[in-house]
Design a protein around this nucleic acid. Sequence first.
DNA 1: TGGTGTGAACCGATTCACAGCA
DNA 2: TGCTGTGAATCGGTTCACACCA
Lengths: 208, 208
Amino acid sequence: MDRKLSTTGIYRLALYNRYLNGLHRGESDYVSSQELADATGHTAAQVRKDLTCYGSLGEPSKGYKIRKLKALLARIFGKEEARNVILVGVGNLGMALLAYKGFQIQRFNIVASFDMDTKKIGKRIENVMIYHINDLDSVVADTKAQVAIVSVPASSAQEVINKLVSAGIKAILNFAPSSLIVPEGIELQNVDLSVELDRLYYLLKNPH
Amino acid sequence: MDRKLSTTGIYRLALYNRYLNGLHRGESDYVSSQELADATGHTAAQVRKDLTCYGSLGEPSKGYKIRKLKALLARIFGKEEARNVILVGVGNLGMALLAYKGFQIQRFNIVASFDMDTKKIGKRIENVMIYHINDLDSVVADTKAQVAIVSVPASSAQEVINKLVSAGIKAILNFAPSSLIVPEGIELQNVDLSVELDRLYYLLKNPH
DNA sequence: TGGTGTGAACCGATTCACAGCA
DNA sequence: TGCTGTGAATCGGTTCACACCA
């Protein structure tokens, strides 16, 4: 177990996780690899390959016990501990993210937010305090947050990222439309909304 | 030319596109595959492979002429025409997307939005009218929009998607945390913010 | 000399097929 | 019988190495 899983494999695992959480069925019941495959748009063999990386908890002719599977996924994704996240950039998108209920459902807590606009500092949005970016180090230390969401303009994204890294942040979800550089060992995940739309337009114009 | 490009290849192409648009350099100048590679975090060979799918417009010992490359990418991503997009679900996230300036920069026009909340209908956010979801068919026909952004709760996402498809929408960018089914020929791109955070936590807990 | 275009080699992920077990 | 676990085969994308050209 604990064998390597590809980037897309992690993505699938998160999808199985999401499906199970939305499943209101007796927790002593079972799911088959086929059911998980259908629910997430993959194949049964793929699901089994993904899951056997973490030991063989499937039972022949029955499937996977939901309770066990949920526990495994919770452990893999660190849901057992508090998943404290900070957010930098309380503009339109940042505010929407603060208000997004889905994070709470998936057990993420946005514990602090940061901005440069002095008019915003000290206010609370959705009960999350807005600090000045200069307070980053102390707040990160206090909250023990390891993950940050960046929703600042592209022009200041690299600067913000540098500050986050030196404050001790280990992983970053970046919404700024900019290619950023992080040191070895720091995880960076980019979400560029325009790029996603570009992909769709590509597919429209270049049907397969 | 017009050979098949993988999903991740399209993504890289969109990144080259973004880099070139941010480049304020004489348009008669050249970029090398190496420069594009460095700017987007890939390799030079990869960049060349991606670009040669669309004919050989690189010039030996010089690189790619920026103006030509921009024109090619604009054509590939349909930027020559109006890229009219509609948005369904004017909640927190929806409003933030309406206000997001990056879409205009990348030449996307959100031409209409939809909701079910009668208190919102008829208002304008960022100069975009909010219609009732029942008006979908006529507005899609009028605006000739082919792409929709979905930012409704997971519970109503499938229903909304069905309506979009029957209204003639061809591609969908979905923010609802739910696995959705679309007919053959309709493109669906999912962005689940919790799943992205899950990936980061996976990487934190399972260092490579 | 410097950078493109591209076949060949490589590598990793997905699929297949089937043994094994309740 | 039904569904898991898994080696083997397959498939596709990435990297390499180098011919070619201004």
